[in-house]
């Protein structure tokens, strides 16, 4: 079952911009276990993940999903930072505009997490980025899925 919690967050600019108006690299994530990516990638946007506090029977928390327009010809790198709980790892999934899965940092077959997803976009348009946490505990175990999905880019 895929429980999707759409973000209500008004992220401007900003974040917009915003917020994401400016490239930023390497600082500000000191308290978190951020994945290193090549320095040529420019910071684009951080997606705040505030997921459910209980694992389901598969040991995964509910999903935070964000929509974002990716541009053809741009190489994106998706990483995550997850604070406070070393036993929890963040799942990242990238979907196209039709919600077809393009990539996941978790290989179900190998039960393996990849540190980052690098995606060379060939189709401009809306994409969806989904984040959830996976822990070592059993169903119903309380946890905190709190962190950020970090999107960087390079041309």
């Amino acid at each position: 079952m895929k429980a999707t919690i759409k973000t209500n967050t008004i992220r401007l600019l900003l974040c917009l911009l915003t917020i994401s108006l400016f490239p930023a690299i390497g600082i500000g994530q000191k308290s978190q276990t951020s994945t290193a990516v090549p320095s040529k990638d420019l910071y684009l946007k951080a997606f705040k993940v505030r997921s459910g506090v209980s694992f389901n029977q598969s040991g995964v928390t509910s999903v935070n999903e964000f929509a974002y327009v990716l541009s053809k010809g741009v190489s994106y790198v998706l990483t995550s930072s997850q604070a406070e709980n070393p036993n929890v790892k963040m799942r990242m999934q990238l979907f196209d505009r039709n919600h077809k899965l393009l990539a996941s940092n978790f290989d179900e077959g190998k039960k393996k997490f990849y540190s980052a997803i690098q995606y060379k976009c060939t189709t401009s348009g809306l994409h969806y980025l989904a984040f959830s946490c996976e822990g070592s505990g059993g169903a119903g175990e309380k946890t905190e899925c709190k962190g950020e999905g970090i999107l960087k880019f390079s041309n």
């Binding site: 401007l12 911009l17 917020i19 108006l21 500000g28």
Partner: peptide, 29 residues
Amino acid sequence: LLYLTTSGFEKMDEFLKEKNRGNISALIL
């Protein structure tokens, strides 16, 4: 410099959201 600027905008966005000043965010955007 770039990171701090970005961070400033992100925090500003959060603040505007909390204060229900989304129209300001929309205009900035």
